[in-house]
């Protein structure tokens, strides 16, 4: 099994406006590394709490902080035939976990539950196929793209509080492979997708119409769109470039904010977010939540940026145990989960 431990709070990672303070450390006693981490509100007969999720290739565990401050594993779901690739956050959903399974690409998406009857953990398959991209949307919906090019199928599935599938709606596919989705803050019925050739597509979720396909005009291949914001008649998108060539590493920002006019399909870079002078490395992986972006850099450092200020607000260098490999925002957005390859997850408050 897995063990818990609590580390005394200490102050780390201060730079300019942001403050990262470590509050807890969770450690898998098997020492196997986590492929993903996350948070979920969990309701049970005897507690309601914001819990931490850790995913290794063969299991997903739900951790709860006990009254004395220690963390304990409440439930573990095991996977024998397919590996866990990622946890899929579901905005506003409680007591339900969504995971993507597969090897090189996602082949199945499952919901994970805990049944009070017999105290058992259960799983149900939501979608199977060659899944290229998936995103959990508000109002208990999940959007997926399967296949590629002309055979592509883009679908929004809605589900009940118990995770049962209610209805499925097809979105008109673009004639390019979708590699990432992002919902649009400020415009609930809009959804954007990023294609393999760096085109941004916009759908109307209510009608399923494909409204626009626009080039975002950046030179890095297979950029990822993390988030979109609709304001003042423009779409602002936050992009990262995990597949940019190493040789260009010095000049590649971790994130870029690009403004797009959907009426004319013209775009312009608003700001480029890079590490402060003296820090090295390029973007490895990261997450954007509200107006904050966090990334693990190839140097093993975590950096946090404020998208409104347009600058790096905190840097968390590798600690004495090793380099960082994962970073995720908590659903409360004032906490950051930071993972290392030895199966450790550190919880930081971010203010």
């Amino acid at each position: 099994g897995e063990v818990e431990c609590l580390v005394e709070p200490s102050l780390e990672g201060i730079l300019g406006e942001g403050k990262l303070q470590m509050t807890s450390k969770l450690k898998s006693c098997s020492g196997s590394s986590f492929v993903d981490v996350g948070t979920v509100w969990w309701e049970a007969a005897d507690f309601t709490a914001l819990c931490v999720l850790t995913a290794s290739e063969t299991s997903v565990s739900l951790w709860r902080q006990m009254d004395d401050g220690h963390w304990a594993v409440m439930h573990t779901w095991h996977f024998n035939k397919v590996l866990v690739i990622q946890i899929i956050p579901l905005p506003g959903v409680r007591s339900l976990v969504c995971v993507a399974l597969g090897s090189l690409e996602i082949v199945e998406i499952r919901f994970l539950f805990h049944s009070s009857e017999g105290d058992s953990v259960t799983q149900s398959s939501v979608k199977a196929g060659k899944i290229k991209a998936v995103l959990g949307l508000r109002k208990r919906r999940l959007v997926t793209s399967c296949g590629s090019l002309r055979d592509q199928e883009v679908e929004v599935a809605s589900f009940s509080e118990l995770g049962r599938s209610n209805e499925r709606q097809t979105l008109m596919p673009p004639e390019e492979t979708i590699l990432a989705f992002a919902d649009v803050e400020g415009m609930q019925e809009a959804l954007v997708g990023m294609t393999a050739t760096n085109c941004l597509v916009v759908w109307n979720l209510a009608s399923g119409q494909l409204l626009r396909k626009m080039s975002v005009g950046c030179s890095y291949p297979a950029s990822v769109c993390h988030r979109a914001y609709a304001d003042l008649g423009l779409l602002f998108v936050v992009l990262s470039h995990p597949h940019a060539k190493e040789s260009k590493a010095c000049g590649i920002p971790a994130f870029q904010v690009v403004a797009i006019n959907p009426k004319t399909a013209r775009s312009a870079t608003v700001t480029s977010l890079s590490l402060p002078l003296g820090s090295e490395g390029r973007y490895l992986e990261g997450e954007v939540r509200d107006a904050s972006a966090a990334a693990v850099m190839t140097s093993g450092t975590i950096a946090v940026w404020d998208l409104f200020l347009g600058r790096c607000t905190a840097v968390l260098p590798p600690n004495s145990e090793g380099k960082w490999s994962l970073v995720r925002w908590s659903v409360t957005d004032t906490c950051l989960l930071a993972g290392q390859n030895d199966g450790s997850v550190y919880i930081y408050s971010y203010t």
Binding site: S207, Q209, G233, N261, K263, T264, R266
Partner: peptide, 23 residues
Amino acid sequence: CSDSDLGPISINWFEELSSEAPP
């Protein structure tokens, strides 16, 4: 970026594109 870089901006772009796009 300036408005001239991006062309004329419409606050109602979502509704306008929805009325123009094929169903």
